[in-house]
C-alpha cells in the first residue's frame, strides 16, 4: 500500500485533488469516486484498473470534464476545470483533450477522413487534406480514407477513432476500454499504436479491465469502491493480473 496516491510528481497532465462523485441521494447514494487524489504524468501512459463497479469509468469522465465532480478539484495541465462553463469545456474538448471509447463512436454517415477531420471543422478550422491523410497514415489506414465506418473492421474503426482523437494534437488522450470490443489481434495493433504514441510523448489515461492492455502502460492504478487502492509501474501482464485478482477478492 503506497503512502501517497501520487503516481508522478512533476509536470502532471491531469491532476485530481480529493475528487468525489456521488450518484443518488440519502440511503441510496453510491460514492462512485470517493476522495481520489491522483496525478497523471505528462508524456506518460497510465492505466486505471479495477473490478466492474469500482468507479474507473466515472473517474475518467470526471478527469476529462465530461462529468461534474461533487467535491474536489480537476486540473488539466494548469487549468482548473472543476467549475468550467459549458463553453470552456467545449473549447477544452476541441483543442486539449481527445477521447477513444470502447464503442468507437464514429459518425456512420461520414467517411474515415471526414470523421478524422470533424474535430478540426468543429473548431472552425479548414482541415488540410494532407494533414488528415497523414494522421490516418500514422494509424496505418492511409488506404481506407474514403471508407465509411461500416466498411471497416472493428480494429480499423478504433484506429480511425484514435486518429480523430489525435488530429487536434491533444495534451491528453482519454481512452475508455479502447480494446474492449476488439479481438486479440486487432487489440494488439491498437495497443502497439498507443505505445508508439506514448513513446513519442503523448499523455494517455486509459481505463481497462484487461491486464494485458494495462501491462502495456507505463503505470497502473488500481481502483476499488471508488478509491485508489494500489499502483504499480513497469509490471508485466501476470503481475497486473495477480494484483487485480487480489483486489477483486
Amino acid at each position: 500500500m503506497p503512502t501517497t496516491d501520487t503516481v508522478t510528481r512533476v509536470n502532471a497532465a491531469v491532476t485530481l485533488r480529493g475528487v468525489s462523485r456521488v450518484y443518488g441521494r440519502g440511503a441510496a447514494a453510491v460514492r462512485a469516486v470517493d476522495n481520489v487524489s491522483l496525478e497523471f504524468p505528462r508524456g506518460g501512459w497510465t492505466a486505471v484498473m479495477g473490478p466492474s463497479g469500482s468507479g474507473k469509468s466515472t473517474l475518467l469522465h470526471c478527469a476529462a470534464g465530461l462529468e461534474k465532480v461533487d467535491s474536489g478539484q480537476v486540473i488539466v495541465g494548469d487549468n482548473d476545470i472543476t467549475s468550467a462553463s459549458d463553453a470552456e469545456l467545449t473549447a477544452l474538448r476541441r483543442t486539449r483533450i481527445g477521447f477513444v471509447f470502447q464503442s468507437f463512436n464514429l459518425i456512420g454517415s461520414l467517411s474515415a477522413e471526414r470523421n478524422v477531420a470533424l474535430p478540426l471543422r468543429l473548431a472552425g478550422q479548414r482541415p488540410k487534406p494532407a494533414e488528415v491523410r497523414a494522421t490516418l497514415a500514422r494509424v496505418g489506414l492511409a488506404d481506407r480514407a474514403r471508407h465509411r465506418p461500416r466498411e471497416l473492421s472493428g480494429g480499423q474503426q478504433q484506429r480511425v477513432a484514435i486518429a480523430r482523437a489525435m488530429v487536434t494534437r491533444p495534451e491528453v488522450l482519454f481512452a475508455d476500454e479502447p480494446t474492449g470490443a476488439l479481438d486479440s489481434t486487432a487489440a494488439r495493433t491498437v495497443l502497439d499504436l498507443m505505445r508508439e504514441m506514448a513513446d513519442a510523448g503523448q499523455s494517455i489515461v486509459m481505463v481497462t479491465h484487461d491486464p494485458g492492455a494495462a501491462a502495456r502502460a507505463d503505470a497502473v492504478v488500481f481502483l476499488r469502491d471508488g478509491r485508489v487502492v494500489d499502483h504499480v509501474t513497469g509490471a508485466g501482464p501476470r503481475e497486473v493480473a495477480d494484483r487485480l485478482a487480489a483486489w477483486e477478492r
Binding site: A87, T90, R93, R94, T95, N105, I107
Partner: peptide, 15 residues
C-alpha cells in the same frame, strides 16, 4: 446520441 457524439468531439451548443 448522434448529437452527444458531436459534443464529445468538440461541437458547441451553438454549432
Amino acid at each position: 446520441r448522434d448529437l452527444a457524439l458531436l459534443r464529445l468531439v468538440g461541437g458547441s451548443r451553438g454549432q
